[in-house]
Design a protein around this nucleic acid. Structure first.
Length: 346
DNA sequence: CAACCGTGGTA
DNA sequence: TTACCAAGGTT
């Protein structure tokens, strides 16, 4: 039996029941695909439910503010996904008369929609034969065909896409694309794949050559940077001060306490030399270090060594203040959220 | 195009 | 504890 046919039959009996699986509404599929980028289903499920409830249609999403959308996205990470989702919703409503793009080529024009997501929506909603290549597909194909080209190299990306496109030629694209992804996550898993009961085991070259644990090959080029964050938590009892992050770095458009970033750990005297204090506090401000041991927030490519400094003062006239009672209205990074949970419970 | 963009789960 | 990685995309 053909490769695609085996997977389609396996899918018929083993596919997972997911909230968006019985829909062909491109808005729902788009939403699910964006949420699931680099994200486990279990982690994304609740967010999907919230978005469907708060924004039942693409118009509802377009009419919302970016702050609202980011607030609903809070905690999920990769926040450009939320910003692009909102931007693209407005693009669809304003430029496309609310009609969702229906081809791979047109879908690619949406911000936040790349080759994978365009292929997924085009195949699932419009039955277009465009093969998805996600982490699952890389794993299944590299093992079955014994391909050791690095999956994160330009050469590998091109090779696997072409192979996947060839394999989908005679398949039902909607079912086949979802089949190979479900199969990858449930059977051909990264660790401890269930090769003993695998329906593709007969033709799997990696299994025959005992190379399952060596595939796929991935070049590692990740170097972790250490950064030192000092958040100034102004607190006069009722009010605090928060700011919106700008620029294109991490956590763009989310809120935080005023931040002083240094290239090494610092004490309060060094912090007071910062322009933040020079410009706003002429007399000696009294800083209390909230956490003597830094909180190390670990991201994929940087470790944030974080200290929270409490500045108990009444001279906050120069700032735009926020009542503590409203603090939960703002989208904040997980790191800030963790601090707020602890600080406000005391 | 190599570097960057979050958070949480697992071996 | 570390390393990997999870329905990737942008610059």
């Amino acid at each position: 039996m053909k490769f695609y046919k085996i997977l389609e039959m396996w899918y018929l009996n083993n596919k997972r029941d997911l909230p968006w699986r019985n829909s062909s509404n491109p808005y729902f599929i788009w939403l699910s695909e964006i949420i699931l980028q680099q994200t486990r289903i279990q982690q994304g499920l609740d967010y999907y439910k919230v978005f469907i409830e708060h924004y039942p249609t693409v118009q509802d999403l377009a009419n919302a503010s970016e702050d609202e959308v980011l607030k609903d996205w809070q905690g999920l990470g990769y926040y450009s996904r939320a910003r692009n989702l909102h931007f693209s919703a407005q693009y669809i409503c304003n430029e496309l008369n609310g009609v969702f793009p229906s081809t791979y080529k047109e879908l690619l024009k949406l911000k936040g929609v790349g080759d994978y997501t365009a292929s997924a929506i085009a195949s699932i909603c419009f039955n277009e034969k465009t093969a998805v290549v996600d982490g699952n597909v890389y794993r299944v194909l590299s093992r079955y065909f014994n391909i050791n080209t690095p999956i994160n190299s330009p050469k590998g990306i091109k090779y696997f896409k072409e192979l996947a496109q060839e394999l989908i030629k005679d398949a039902n694209p909607k079912d086949y694309n979802q089949a190979i992804m479900d199969f990858g996550s449930m059977v051909c898993k990264p660790a401890n794949p269930t090769c003993d009961t695998c329906v593709l085991a007969d033709g799997c070259i990696a299994k025959a050559k005992n190379l399952i644990n060596d595939l796929p090959v991935k070049e590692k080029k990740l170097k972790v940077k250490n950064k030192f964050f000092n958040f100034i938590v102004i607190d006069n009892g009722d009010f605090t001060v928060i700011e919106k992050r700008t620029g294109n770095g991490i956590w763009k458009n989310l809120y935080q306490f005023p931040l002083i970033e240094t290239d090494k750990p610092v004490d309060d005297q060094a912090l007071i030399e910062d322009p933040f204090f020079k410009n706003n506090y002429t007399k000696n401000p009294e800083l209390t270090l909230y956490n003597p041991e830094p909180w190390v927030h670990k991201l994929t490519h940087q470790h944030l060594h974080t200290h929270f400094w409490i500045l108990n003062t009444n001279s906050i006239d120069n700032f735009e203040t926020t009542p503590w009672s409203n603090i939960d209205d703002f989208a904040v990074p997980k790191l800030i959220h963790n601090f707020l949970e602890e600080y406000n419970s005391k």
